[in-house]
């Protein structure tokens, strides 16, 4: 009984000691980025050339974060990241796959106003 306990304690020490020869799990974040899973949901990306301005994304959004405005010859896309819960509903329900969940998860900004993303299909420099 007593010897069994002693044996267990000594085995425990060896097990812990063996860990020091294994590979480190820590990843030094800003330098080394994590491998993201396939279905990872980051900030939604909008592709103007695919969008037909059906406004389904605006309707399904549970947080009222997405806004689509149809102009005469252009479509405006607005996303409020301070409201967005990154649920992926807009991307799932989009009939033309104009919204795709990107892998970008670094959304920290210095000011609240930077959280509101405005895109216009007329501008060529949208991403």
């Amino acid at each position: 009984m007593f010897l069994n306990k002693l044996k267990a304690i000594i085995e425990g020490h060896f097990t812990v000691f063996k860990h020091s020869f294994k590979k480190r799990i820590t990843q030094e974040y800003p330098e080394v980025k994590q491998d993201l899973p396939e279905n990872f949901r980051g900030v939604p990306d909008w592709y103007a050339e695919k969008c037909i301005a059906c406004k389904i994304c605006e309707k399904v959004c549970p947080a009222n974060a997405v806004r689509i405005e149809k102009g005469v010859d252009n479509v405006k896309f607005g996303l409020n990241l301070s409201k967005c819960i990154i649920c992926g509903n807009c991307a799932y329900n989009c009939p033309k796959n104009a919204i795709i969940m990107s892998k970008n998860y670094e959304t920290a900004v210095a000011s609240k106003s930077l959280l509101i993303i405005e895109k216009n299909s007329k501008d060529n420099n949208y991403e």
Partner: peptide
């Protein structure tokens, strides 16, 4: 302690 728990510790 980091060594025994497969971490890196202060770096």
């Amino acid at each position: 302690l980091a060594l025994f728990t497969q971490r890196k510790g202060p770096n």
